[in-house]
Simulated assay, not measured.
Amino acid sequence: MEYLEFKITCSPSYREILIAEMAGIGFDSFLETEAGIDAYILPEELDRKDWEALIARYKEAAAVQVSEGVLPKVNWNEAWEKHYDPIAVADQVYVRATFHPSKAASFVHEIIINPKMSFGTGHHATTFLMLSWQLSLDHRHKKVMDAGSGTGILAIMAKKLGAKFVTAFDIDDWSVENGNENFEINGLVGTIMQKGTVRSVSKEKNYDLILANINKNVLLDELPTYAGDLSAGGLLVLSGFYEKDIPEIRKAAEEQGLEYRDKKCSKQWAAVLFSRTH
């Protein structure tokens, strides 16, 4: 299976923004390099008009330069082994790949991810923020939803924090396959990632905690469903948008009867906590 490969040089401060924007138009794999980003997409998934508009939007501000090629085969494990480093969230969680040595003795929790794409490994600010929120929230004996699960890292974290049940799903075949592989690696017996959206998958009622790290437009569209799926007193954590977008997200959430609680921000990205009061 051939992939289109785009080697992008850009200002360091724009790397995560560009990755998020490219993920939004179909790119499914990224490697950060010294010069910028290598990005990959299947030819049939690329909308040239959207791609050209994206590059034009950031070309001057981010000093973007692009070269395009074709990659016949990608050994993602080999590629990630060269570029992926473990991360620590506070002193509580150590996220590593299968090829890194364990540090379980030094951390309360260790999550093992077989990395196949950039989002969901903990390196992106939104995933890091979501993990940070999870560490401050009570998961014990709770019903948890992880919407847009990616690698499944948030669902894995939820189970390690004591959740009794986790519903996890994603719209991407590759994410579902990778997520279920990661569930098995981390010993999540009985937890299966489904393919679909919050409106189409099989799910419970009255979740105690919903986690959704997707993007602003999807979150705004699905907020009514999240609100309806929350129990009274339930919590909703949203991320995948910029700090400047918080007012818009907050307004939409409050229109659904949700109460703004707090926010965490990093590198222009935000993760916001809401609660359902009735």
Results as ranks from 00 to 15, higher is better:
residue 174 W to H: 11
residue 228 G to Y: 10
residue 212 A to I: 14
residue 234 G to I: 02
residue 181 E to L: 09
residue 167 T to W: 01
residue 188 L to T: 10
residue 142 K to W: 06
residue 251 K to N: 09
residue 38 D to K: 14
residue 153 I to M: 00
residue 13 S to Y: 14
residue 194 Q to W: 01
residue 228 G to R: 08
residue 59 K to R: 09
residue 275 S to Q: 05
residue 146 D to A: 09
residue 193 M to N: 04
residue 234 G to T: 09
residue 252 A to Q: 08
residue 258 L to K: 00
residue 181 E to Y: 05
residue 48 R to Y: 13
residue 99 F to T: 04
residue 132 S to K: 14
residue 273 L to K: 15
residue 76 W to A: 07
residue 58 Y to G: 03
residue 20 A to H: 06
residue 2 E to W: 05
residue 211 L to H: 01
residue 183 F to N: 04
residue 56 A to P: 12
residue 224 P to Q: 08
residue 54 L to P: 14
residue 271 A to S: 14
residue 176 V to Y: 00
residue 223 L to T: 12
residue 215 N to K: 12
residue 213 N to M: 02
residue 269 W to P: 02
residue 26 G to Q: 14
residue 255 E to Y: 11
residue 67 S to F: 07
residue 37 I to Q: 03
residue 144 V to T: 15
residue 47 D to R: 13
residue 213 N to Q: 03
residue 212 A to H: 04
residue 26 G to R: 10
residue 115 P to A: 10
residue 253 A to F: 07
residue 207 Y to G: 03
residue 244 K to W: 11
residue 154 L to E: 00
residue 200 S to P: 15
residue 97 A to F: 00
residue 193 M to P: 01
residue 150 G to C: 13
residue 29 S to K: 13
residue 111 I to P: 00
residue 124 H to Q: 01
residue 195 K to N: 03
residue 32 E to V: 15
residue 125 A to V: 08
residue 22 M to Y: 11
residue 189 V to K: 12
residue 261 R to F: 08
residue 200 S to Q: 10
residue 214 I to T: 03
residue 42 L to K: 10
residue 105 A to P: 11
residue 11 S to R: 11
residue 266 S to F: 10
residue 266 S to D: 05
residue 272 V to S: 04
residue 14 Y to K: 05
residue 176 V to K: 03
residue 131 L to I: 13
residue 249 I to F: 11
residue 64 V to D: 00
residue 172 D to R: 13
residue 209 L to T: 06
residue 89 V to P: 04
residue 47 D to H: 14
residue 116 K to V: 04
residue 128 F to S: 06
residue 203 K to E: 12
residue 132 S to H: 12
residue 90 A to Y: 15
residue 117 M to T: 12
residue 95 V to H: 04
residue 275 S to H: 05
residue 159 K to W: 07
residue 52 E to N: 14
residue 109 H to V: 05
residue 168 A to M: 01
residue 69 G to I: 06
residue 50 D to H: 11
residue 6 F to D: 01
residue 144 V to I: 12
residue 14 Y to D: 08
residue 261 R to N: 13
residue 275 S to W: 07
residue 271 A to T: 02
residue 113 I to W: 00
residue 212 A to L: 08
residue 181 E to I: 10
residue 62 A to W: 00
residue 57 R to S: 06
residue 225 T to M: 08
residue 175 S to M: 04
residue 16 E to R: 00
residue 133 W to T: 07
residue 240 G to Q: 03
residue 82 K to F: 02
residue 170 D to V: 05
residue 271 A to E: 05
residue 43 P to V: 10
residue 95 V to K: 03
residue 244 K to N: 09
residue 141 H to D: 07
residue 158 A to T: 01
residue 137 L to N: 12
residue 90 A to M: 13
residue 200 S to W: 09
residue 48 R to D: 08
residue 217 N to D: 14
residue 66 V to E: 11
residue 15 R to V: 15
residue 118 S to M: 08
residue 34 E to I: 10
residue 125 A to S: 08
residue 253 A to N: 07
residue 35 A to P: 06
residue 11 S to P: 10
residue 88 A to T: 15
